[in-house]
Design a protein around this nucleic acid. Structure first.
Lengths: 308, 308
DNA sequence: CCTGGCATG
DNA sequence: CATGGCAGG
């Protein structure tokens, strides 16, 4: 046997890797899963100002299926000022009327993959019209897959992204590394003009605390040293992981669970979705939430409260 | 406009072609659909012998989906001695345990497409073991798609087939014509040894009475002059369409309805599934039934009662 | 284990 | 408008 089948699956599916362990016991005890309960929203900043902007980000894993699964009902409950979606996998002409006609969000922006139909794609829906909106990061090689929308608001930029997955067997890790460099550069330049909020599926769990099974996943997409360092370098460039800022020790807080092996019910997950803030916006931060109960995708939504 | 869109759809989907008519009215009146109610089974032959063999044939359009839709429950009710299935679209290793473990049919035979996975495929399940079983018709070019199983019983051969569809735009009509010739030759040779029963999806509606909209479908797969003549020539070679033999004037009796446009609820269908008998077996024929209420596929099952 | 696309019917 | 296979995750 060249390679254990379980290992293949772990590599393939961002599995927890438990069964891969060399000294795995015959009888695996079904430990009670440690769940995470997001605490109530804090609506004021440290310096006592009231939050006046609510942003939600959700990797919907196929917008059409997500709409069918009543994702928009949850959105209407949550009622964010801006809704950012990733992995829409939908050409503009195929968008369900349920979402294109949503009166709560008169300003809607769609980025789609130019080459592959039904692949990647991000969206931004706004209650108020941004001053400017643009697509991509200004580099040909990165702007063909509908991965970035940037909206300019009076006091900040909002960037939403779906970062390229490094793939099974890390087939696309090299590309990912160039993306990480170029994307960081894009953000740094933007940040020099106005502070920014970056949100979306960054396709990396930063530290061991950010996924259930760090040990088994060091060679898997989303937890390789390269990807983790990429994120560290982003933070070093003057940005902050808002959730970790507020909850520095909170374990078991994930935003993604593979559909396989009942991972979600066992809370075998990854924190892949983030609100990353320019340092200048830290005083404006009120709360960074994980809406772990919202169903409709293999990711859950996250919500940010800020003062703008 | 080169070609009306409706025409494309009719060509594509074996539609009724009504909307294609040049003098189609603006307001299409929703005529009450003429349904067909299969009369009670006749269990004796003309010469007064009791039926002692029951054969059911069903194009299941994907065996796995059909099993999920409880097709086997219907089979257990019907309880034929032999069950013939077409379009199984399933490799032997992927067969659901529900069917492979069925104790009622200890003798099971599977023919699958050698090239394309999940394409074509026929099966035969028998309560009693045939004397011999073989696959294909003995011609390389026709035997790669899992389309024929022949079982030898003491007094007759049972052949089940899934005849090649001529395809949208009749892209495969030429191939179909060579198939028709070679398959007829195969059956004629078999017939010289022992009489035979041929059953399955012959992918042709023989006469205008055999489909709802003959006018609109003369250029569509399943009702071209070539395919119809192919069937006529088969009958001329010494075989009989058992259903038409017993019910010579019965219209609206179909075995297939496209999933599109609610065809089944409107009984806009085609008779594509047949029991064709060697002339020598005509005295043994008791009844040839269409089980139009059985759901689980875009075809319904048909059942033959004979004396063997 | 899910998505969306595709070929096929 | 269904099926199954496929790439992608």
């Amino acid at each position: 046997m060249k390679r254990g089948k379980k290992t293949e699956e772990a590599a393939a599916d961002n599995d927890d890797g438990t069964a891969t362990g060399k000294k795995a016991k015959k009888t695996k005890e079904p430990e009670a899963p440690v769940l995470y309960d997001d605490p109530p929203d804090t609506m004021t900043s440290k310096d006592g100002r009231e939050a006046n902007m609510k942003i939600t980000s959700w990797n919907v894993d196929g917008l059409r299926a997500w709409v069918k699964k009543k994702g928009l009902d949850w959105v209407r409950e949550e009622a964010p000022d801006v809704l950012c979606l990733q992995e829409t996998k939908c050409a503009e002409k195929d968008l369900p009327a349920d979402i294109t006609s949503m009166p709560e969000y008169p300003h809607k922006y769609w980025a789609v993959s130019a080459e592959k139909e039904g692949y990647s794609g991000v969206a931004m829906l706004c209650k108020t019209e941004p001053l400017n909106v643009n697509y991509g990061i200004g580099k040909e090689e990165h702007d063909k897959e509908g991965r970035v929308i940037t909206a300019e608001f009076p006091s900040f930029y909002l960037v939403t992204t779906y970062v390229p997955n490094s793939g099974r067997g890390l087939v696309r890790l090299d590309y990912r590394k160039t993306w990480d460099v170029d994307f960081r550069e894009y953000l740094s330049e933007l940040d020099q003009k106005k502070p920014l909020v970056l949100c979306g599926d960054l396709n990396v769990a930063h530290q061991e605390i950010d996924l259930k099974n760090p040990k088994g996943n060091k060679k898997n997409a989303g937890f390789t040293p390269d990807e983790r360092e990429g994120f560290s370098e982003l933070l070093a460039a003057g940005f902050t992981d808002s959730f970790r800022e507020i909850y520095p020790e909170q374990a078991f807080a994930y935003t993604f669970w593979t559909y396989m092996m009942n991972s979600r019910s066992k809370n075998v997950g990854w924190r892949l979705d983030y609100f990353v803030l320019s340092t200048a916006l830290l005083p404006a931060l009120c709360d960074s939430k994980i809406r772990g109960k919202a169903m409709g995708s293999d990711h859950c939504p996250i919500t940010l409260h800020i003062v703008v």
